Structure formats: structure tokens, C-alpha cells
Amino acid sequence: MKRPIALGAVALGVVAAVLGTVVGTTGVLDGWPDLIGYSATLVVGRALLVFAVGALLYGSYRLAVGVLMRSANKRRAYNTRNLLRLVFGFVGTVATLAVLTENWLGLLFSLGVIGFAVTFALQQPLLSLIAWVYITVKQPYGVGDRVRIDDAKGDVIGVDFLVTTLWEINGELVTTNQPSGRVVTVPNSVVLSSNVVNFGGGGSPYVWNEIGIQVAYETDLDFAREVMAEEASDLLGDEMAAGIAAYREALAETPVELEVHDRPTVNVTQGESWVELRVRYLTHPRQGQRVKNRLYERILERFNDAPDRVAFPVSRSR
């Protein structure tokens, strides 16, 4: 449906351009009365040319976007579409003003002078536009990523010229990594002056996560660590194996050298009246809370089934 509309717009633009040229050069409307204080030839001819510019650019833009949307890489298509919007908008503005004034050189000079003045008046929007270019080129994040920008955290649902739109997680309404239902807009300029955290944006969609459980000193630590690693491996299974492969592949593209274990590991931390066991595993950031809840339940169930080997601290301060 969109392709016929785009082709129709291009065809109308060509027809309008031809008619505008004919009206402006042949004088077929010389006998008509003036319109809004100007000759009919001038008003009708330039109106047709302005319409031709708009129709041709709109049709061309729709055709280009239609081709882009067929790409398997939706993020790249989205960024390219935004760039096309900027380019076509600029070309359309210049072409329209040029048709109305018939003075390309003077128009470009005027735009330069006006642009210099506008730079001082619109510093923040221009900074956001520059940041949009940076985001598009360097891609610290893209549509679909889970990020934290300054104090806003969420899933990116839009990166426009001036703002980035997030589907909020955490926030003031919830305390876990779940959507709150609110949409947050962040000026792109914030990206240039604040820390940006991309959860899973280092070339791999997986991140490391941990669960900590406090046990008493009387606990059989070897048994407890084995149970935690076993339950994590059983729950994550092939998903973690795929995540490890993707993580190693992404790591190989960097100068960083890290030891990456094939299965979950358990670290021990000594507390004042307890020992904290933390199981470390790899998971997708959007599944982090779900995996944590399920794994916590499974580990506690196994611990409760072995009261002679696992004891919990008596203090209520933990």
C-alpha cells in the first residue's frame, strides 16, 4: 500500500514541476487577475514548483524507507531512516525557499548568517542534534537495548534527533528490573556529559549476574557451593552455554583478557556472623530478575532439604 502512494507522489511531483515550468515560461496566465498582490503567473507557477518539491521529496523518502525496512538489521534501518529524514528535510527546506526567492546563492549565504546566530540561541537543541549524530555513528546504544542514561534506566524504544525515549524499568514505582509502565524521554545531549551504561551492549547480549545467600559458619561450605552451582547450571543449561560462546566471541574483539568459566561459579565472602555465598552466572538482562527469583527458590529448597549440612544465621540483622 505504501509503495503505490510513494510512486503516486513522485508522479504528481513530476507533473507539478512540468506544469509550473510551463506556467512560468509561456505566460499562459498573463490575462488572469493578480493574486494576493502578485501576478497569477508568478503565484501559480511557484506554487506548483513548491508542490513539486514537496511531492518529489516525500515520494522519494517513502520509497527509500520502504527499501530500508526490508533489511534484516532493524537497528541499522532505523538509524538510516532518521538520517534520511534529516537530509530530506534540509533539502526540502532549501529547495522550497530557493523556489520562492529564485536566489540560491543569496539564500545559502543568508542561511549561513542565520545559522551562526541560531547557534547561540539554540545551544541545547543543537547539542542534542550533535549527540544524535554521535549516537548514530558510534552506537553506544540503539533501539531495543536496555540502558541507563544518567539517572534514567529502561529499554530504548526510540532515538530521535533531540531525545532518546525509554520504556522505564525500576524507577519510583517498582524496585526490581521490571517495566514500570512509564515512558521517559532523555535529551540526547545528556549522552555527551553523563555516564551511559548499556546492559549487554559490549557485543554480546548477555551479562553476568549474582545471587547472594547468607549461611552460618556451621554450614558445609563445599556442599552449599556445589548445590548453588548445580542448581544454576541446571536452570540455565544450554542458554548459558550459548551466552558463554557469544561473550567469548565479543571479548576476543577487545584487548581485554579475562578468564571466562563454562559453568556458574560460587564465591565466598566472610561476614561478621555469617558467610555469604554468591553464585555468578550469565544471563540475558531482560531475564535477570526472573532467573534470579527462580534460582533463589530452587537453592533455598535444596538447602532446606539438608538442615544437617546447611544452617542459616540466627541474627535478624542479615
Rank of each mutant, 00 (worst) to 15 (best):
L12F: 13
G20H: 00
V22C: 00
D30N: 15
G31C: 09
D34S: 12
D34E: 13
L35H: 07
G45Q: 06
L49T: 06
L57K: 02
Y61K: 05
R62D: 01
L63P: 01
L63I: 11
V65R: 03
V67D: 00
R70A: 11
S71G: 08
N73L: 08
F90I: 15
A95W: 02
G112I: 03
V113A: 07
A117L: 15
L122K: 10
P125L: 06
L127M: 12
S128T: 04
V137E: 02
V147C: 05
D150M: 08
A152G: 02
I157T: 14
G158T: 04
N170P: 00
P179Q: 04
G181M: 04
R182W: 05
S193K: 14
N209S: 15
I211C: 04
G212D: 12
G212S: 15
Q214W: 14
E218N: 10
T219M: 09
L235K: 01
I244D: 04
E249S: 13
A250K: 02
E253L: 03
T254L: 11
P255C: 08
L258P: 08
L258C: 05
N267H: 08
T269S: 13
G271Q: 13
R278Y: 01
Q289W: 15
Q289S: 12
V291N: 12
R298Y: 05
R298M: 09
D308W: 06
P313C: 09
S315C: 09
